[in-house]
């Protein structure tokens, strides 16, 4: 049991010692380790996406009473692989009147930002690339860069659907960033730290979902809007905008956007598991299994909501954030502050 829990940490220690034994200085060995860790992140992301896309198609099929992919392999599990190969071999079409450089770099920029989010996710006990003392803030501020990438895609395509989709997407993401950040503030106040490991340690007795239920609901709604997922998928509303900012993209460039959306989905769910559900803490199973289990359960709720609710009108979406979510999350911060003072005053905590 002990060995299973420490499996990945022992592998990392072994590689580090081996690198030093072949004559690398500690600084360079650290650098090589960092590269290996980033490669691991890329691996985790790729495997995750293959599973997630298959799972989403199966879940949506179940909800809509269809079969979903069922031809390639048992339960259609190789369908995503086949789709990936198809996308890789497709012709890369760049329309002639696009802003070429912006058009080409937008998907790359988008996926780099979503990969950068994984640096602060604690995958297990001590299994985090950097345990920043401002980890939560890092997650929010790097995530806010995604708007630029979508704007680049929408503008570079030189297409009115793309531009309209990008405008909607950016307006929505900027608006919902505020309740997203505010909903996490209550947790930061209770834990007294922005460091992910401190927040997990503060949940060793009680998960924050029990102390901050309102915050979890606002976080969840805001995250759905941040991810541009249904029922808030106005930016790529197929019936009115064909595919929003991604209309002109084909082949692998389009696939990069698609991949980045699922990458973000896992990142947001893993952060939700860390902030509200005790992170990697759990009985019996090793810590590096608990976080994916919790993240996947949260993602199932995302799927369930996406395939159950109809799309919301754009102006309703905006006024919902400004008039409902932001006041609620602000009230939650005040309530949390009063609660912390009451607990200290009564000497319970």
């Amino acid at each position: 049991m002990e060995n299973v829990e420490l499996l990945f940490l022992n592998i990392a220690k072994f590689i580090f010692n081996w690198l030093q034994s072949i004559g690398l200085s500690p600084l360079w060995a650290d650098f090589v380790m960092l590269v290996i860790k980033f490669a691991c992140i890329a691996g985790i992301v790729t495997v995750n996406i293959l599973i997630l896309i298959w799972l989403e198609r199966k879940v949506s099929g179940f909800i809509q009473q269809r079969l979903g992919p069922n031809r390639l392999g048992p339960f259609g599990i190789f369908q995503t692989v086949a789709d990936a190969i198809k996308l890789l071999t497709k012709e890369d079409i760049i329309p002639s009147r696009t802003d070429k450089f912006i058009f080409r770099t937008a998907p790359i920029f988008f996926i780099i930002i979503s990969l950068m989010l994984y640096i602060v996710i604690p995958f297990g006990d001590g299994m985090q690339i950097v345990d920043l003392n401002i980890g939560v803030f890092y997650f929010l501020s790097v995530g806010s860069l995604a708007t630029i990438a979508i704007l680049m895609a929408g503008w570079g395509s030189n297409n009115k659907w793309s531009l309209l989709g990008a405008m909607r997407s950016v307006a929505q993401m900027i608006t919902y960033e505020i309740p997203l950040a505010f909903s996490l503030l209550g947790i930061i106040m209770i834990a007294g730290s922005l460091r992910m490991s401190d927040i997990i340690a503060a949940q060793s007795n009680v998960w924050f979902i029990l102390l901050q239920p309102i915050a979890f609901i606002t976080y969840f709604i805001a995250a759905t809007a941040e991810l541009n997922r249904g029922p808030f998928d106005m930016p790529e509303a197929e019936q009115e905008l064909t595919a929003g900012a991604y209309t002109e993209y084909t082949g692998m460039r389009w696939a990069l956007f698609f991949l980045a959306e699922y990458t973000n989905l896992f990142a947001v769910s893993a952060i939700a598991a860390t902030m509200f559900f005790g992170g990697w803490q759990g009985p019996f199973l090793p810590s590096w299994l608990w976080l994916p289990i919790k993240a996947y359960l949260i993602m199932m709720i995302f799927f369930w909501i996406k395939w159950t609710f109809p799309r919301i009108r754009m102006d309703h979406l905006m006024s919902f954030s400004w008039k409902v979510l932001i006041p609620i999350s602000l009230a939650n911060i005040i309530l949390t502050g009063c609660g912390i003072h009451l607990f200290r005053w009564m000497g319970w905590w």
Partner: peptide, 15 residues
Amino acid sequence: AAFLGLVQIMIYAGA
């Protein structure tokens, strides 16, 4: 000054 750097990203580059 990591905090300042992240504020720079969030406010200037992101907003």
